[in-house]
Nucleic acid binder design. Structure first.
Lengths: 212, 212
DNA sequence: TGTACATCAGTGAACGCGCGTTCACTGATGTAC
DNA sequence: TGTACATCAGTGAACGCGCGTTCACTGATGTAC
């Protein structure tokens, strides 16, 4: 019955003896992730997060203000984790296969973290102006774009406009992830996803635009 | 202040004088759509739908059982409307351009009906076994697939497995729609969406797979 | 055409629930001297 | 090394809220004869 405490507990983030917690901010983020994964976005509440961190209902306000604040932190952390996964896939793969590997990592992350991935895009529930959130989101996209363009221009410095093949490829992986999560592709064999990722890679490199 | 009643009202679906409503089922579906469009999925409640239809809080139970039942009906109607849009785009367009036109219609529908489109895929909130819902969803996909395959085999009769280019193309439009709705493409010019749809069309016809 | 009656589609008050947030408070921590 | 004190990070009881659902009821409708 208390099984849901395991993750937060095993990370040593439930309040121990003292009056002060020590790392409540992180404990609440982990607790929120736990709730999302177990019960989905519908099942989330600030009180439940406080409960799992072993703390009174008023405590979270000190760190996040309100529920929106906590969820925004969760989303930001989600994008950071996604970025790490994508970066890992990128550096471990020769340039020619990079985009496909990144796409596969994107898909894997989304499927493993369904409800968290979902909330990362639910702007209604987030503080859309939070700089950490925005930065993390851009960083993740950057990894993808860099691999597609196969040059090392640092994109983050100046605003620029990504071109159609990159957007098309991103939309394709993203759509594949969402349709899978939403159960719309239950009848489609796993193998097909691999083929879709190949097509995605080709699109990202302009294989279609350059005269087919 | 009562502005939100307009749609349901102007459709003549608010209870008039009598004890019985006459068409409460449809009135509730319209009211639910209104709420979703105005307040998003978070703002939806069964009581509010009843309120807008001019009926007591217990009334919806007679027609839908619970909130899930009503939302499922909304989602089913959403897919029916989507299917109509896609069919319209298909029949009004020469075969060569059909997939692109359908993709554009898909995107337009999604953007016009953001929160409703969102809920159509939120299986947590729906009765996933509802036959009307399932049928409407399949019918919409069928229009897309038929155009991509450019033959007239009726797909609905026997279960079959769509192949990678069709799934890839669908994922691409779907992803484009969701990323746009979620504000992730705010910096991308509208023109780019048109180019993405062209790429989508090429992919759906196997332009990439057939040796590039 | 009239009457009895079953069925249907509503009412509206009441219930218990968990939520987010507030607030006066208090225990722990860290810093100045 | 010791003491005073400000600041910080918690408590926990209380608030009001809107929700979904229930239930005994009642008015309207339609059908049988």
């Amino acid at each position: 019955m208390k099984k849901h405490l395991n993750t937060v507990k095993s990370a040593g983030l439930v309040k121990r003896g003292g009056y002060h917690h020590g790392d409540l901010r992180n404990a609440l983020i982990l607790a929120a992730e736990e709730i999302l994964q177990e019960r989905g976005a519908t099942g989330f509440s600030l009180r439940e997060a406080a409960r799992r961190a072993g703390v009174s209902p008023g405590a979270p306000a000190h760190h996040f203000g309100d529920a929106r604040g906590l969820l925004t932190a969760v989303a930001a952390r989600g994008f950071k984790r996604l970025e790490e996964e994508l970066s890992g896939a990128s550096t471990n793969t020769p340039p020619a296969d990079r985009v496909r590997a990144i796409g596969a990592a994107y898909l894997t992350f989304a499927l493993k973290n369904g409800p968290i991935f979902g909330i990362m895009w639910l702007r209604d529930l987030l503080d859309q102006t939070d700089p950490e959130y925005l930065k993390a989101g851009r960083a993740a996209f950057n990894v993808f774009e860099q691999a597609a363009l196969e040059r090392n221009v640092p994109v983050a410095t100046a605003p620029h406009v990504p071109d159609a093949p990159v957007i098309a490829a991103w939309a394709m992986v993203h759509g594949l992830a969402r349709l899978t999560l939403d159960g719309a592709l239950d009848a489609v064999p796993l193998d097909t996803r691999g083929q879709v990722l190949k097509l995605m890679s080709a699109v990202s490199h302009g294989a279609v635009a350059k005269e087919c």
